[in-house]
Design a protein around this nucleic acid. Sequence first.
DNA 1: CTAGGGTTAG
Length: 592
Amino acid sequence: MKRISLRNGNGIPFISLFPTSYSCFSPIIVRVYSSKSISVLSKFRANSNFECLDDALILFKKMVTMKPLPSLVDFSKLLKTIIIMKHYSAVVSLFREMQKLGIPINGVILNSVINSYSLMHHADCGFSVLPIYLKNGISFDVVTFTALIRGFFAENKVKDAVELFKKLVQEKICEPDEVMYATVMNGLSKRGQTEKTLSLLRLMEQGNTKPDIINYSIIIDAPCKDRNLDGAISLLNEMKQKGIPPDIVTYSSLIDGLCKLGQWEKVRILFSEMVSLDIYPNVRIFTILTDGLCKEGKVEDAEEVMRQMVRKGVEPNIIIYTAIMDGYCLRGELDGARRVFDFMIDKKIEPDIICYSVLINGYCKVKQLAEAMQLFHEISQKGSKPDIFTYSILLQGLFEAGKIDSAKKFFAEMLSTGLVPDLYTLCTLLKGYFKYGLVEEAMSFFNKLEREIEYTSIEFYNVVINGLCKNGELDKARVIFEKLSLIGMLPNVRTYTIMINGFSLEGFLDEAKDMLRKMEDNGCMPNNVTYNVFVRGYLRCSKINEMATYMKEMVRKGFSCDADTTELLVNVIRENPSVLDMIPEFRSEYKK
DNA sequence: CTAGGGTTAG
C-alpha cells in the first residue's frame, strides 16, 4: 500500500494504491470474481503451497473461468508451484489447456514449460517449444537457454550441453549469468569433471558476471567429492577473501568430504566455525554427520549426534534412520538395525526402498538369506517396488552364500520384471561366476556384454581380469589387460593391483615389480592395498630382503599392513625371528 | 523493479 508506481508494463501511467500483485486490477473489477474463486486465489498468492496436485488443478480451473483473467504472474506462479511438486507433465498439460482456451502466454510461462520438459529428461520436447516463442513474437532469454542446457545434462548429453553453452557465448547470442554458469558447472562437476568446472569459474572471473555463493558451492563440492579436501578448503578461503560468505550448503559439502575421509577433528573445527557464523545446522547436515560416523561403525557417536539434533528441535528423517541402520548392519549387529527399523515404523515413518535395501544388505552380509528374502517380499506387499539396487544386493548375497542356482533364478526374475540391470548388477553376476570357478560361463557372459553394452567401465574389466587371475588364467588376464589401452580404457589403481596380485600369486615377482613401476610411470600411485598385495607376494616366496625393502617404502609412504599381510608376516617371524630385525617398523605392531 | 532458470544427505 506504500509504493506508488507511475507506470505499468506498457508505459501507460497510472497510480497504484494496491499491493503489487493486485496492481493491474481496479477494486471494482475485482468484485466481479466469485467470492470463492478469489479466496482460493488470494490464499495461493499469500502462500504458494499445495497439499497435492489436485488442489493446484482446482485453482487452475477456477482461474481460467475468472473474468477478467488473473494476471500471467498468477499463472506462472502456479506453474512454478507445480514444478516444485515435481508434477512436470501437469505443467505441460496446463500449458496446452491455456493455449486451447486462448489465454495469452509470455516468455516466463514458456520458459517454465521448457524447464518442465528438461526436468522430465525430454530435452527434444523442450526444443520443440521454441517455435511457439517465434510465433508469438517472444524472444528467447538467458532463462530459456539455461533450461535447455539443463535438459541436455538431465539426459546425460554433456557434449550437447557444453556445445550449446559455448555457442551462446562465442556467437554472443546471450550473455551467461550466474545461473547459467551454475547449471553448466553443476552438470560438469556431477560428472567428475572437476578441472573443467574450475576453469569455468576462472572464465567467469574474467567476464561481467561475478561468481556468487551458489557458483562457489558447486565449485567446492567437486573437489570434496574427489576427496581433495585441501583443494576444497583453499577454494573456501578464496570465496571468503572475495567477501562471499559460505552458507550451510557450502559447509555441508566440506563436512561431508571430511567425514568420508574420517577427518573428525577437522569436521569438528569446521562445524564450530559454521555455528560461530550463525549458520544453524539443519537436518541435512546432521544426516551427513550421522552417515559419516555410521560408515565408520561409530554408531554410538551417530546416535549422540541424533539426540543433540532432537534437542535442537530438528526432527530425524528417514535418511538418518537409514544411516544408523546401515551402521548397525556394518557391524553385523542385525538386532540393532532391526530396532531402528521397527522404531521408525512406530514413528509412522514408512520405510522406503533404500531403507529396505540397507536392511536386506545387512541380513545378506551375515548370511541370513531367509530373513533377507522375507524383507524382499515385504516390499511388494507394502506397495513399494524393489529396484536394481535391491536386486543387486540380494544377488550378491545369494552368490556369497554359495546359492548359485538361486542367484541365477533371481537374476532371471529381475529381468522378467522389466528392470534393466546396470553395470554394477552385471559385475556382481560376473564376480559370482568367477568366485565359483565357472570361468567358461563367466567369459561367455563377458564376451556377450562386451559386444552389447555401449559404455562399460574400468571396474567391469577389473572384475574379469581379477576373476581370471584368481582362477589361474593369468595369460588370459594379461591379454585383456594389454587390450585396455587399445579400447581407450584407462587402468586404475585397482587394475594394476589386480595384475600385481595375479603375478605374485604365480610367483612372477619380477613382473609384479615391473607392473608397480609401470603404474607409477603412468601417474597412477599405488595405495595401501597395492603395497600389501606386493609385500605378500615376497612373503609367500620367502624373499625376505625384497619384502623388507618394500615394507620400509610402504611405511614411509604412510601405509600399513592389513590383516592378511600381518598374519602372513607373523607366521614368517615365528619361524625365523631374525626377520623382525630387518623391519623395525613392524616391531611395535608385532608385540600386540 | 514484482513471475520463470542454479547449490548440500541415504
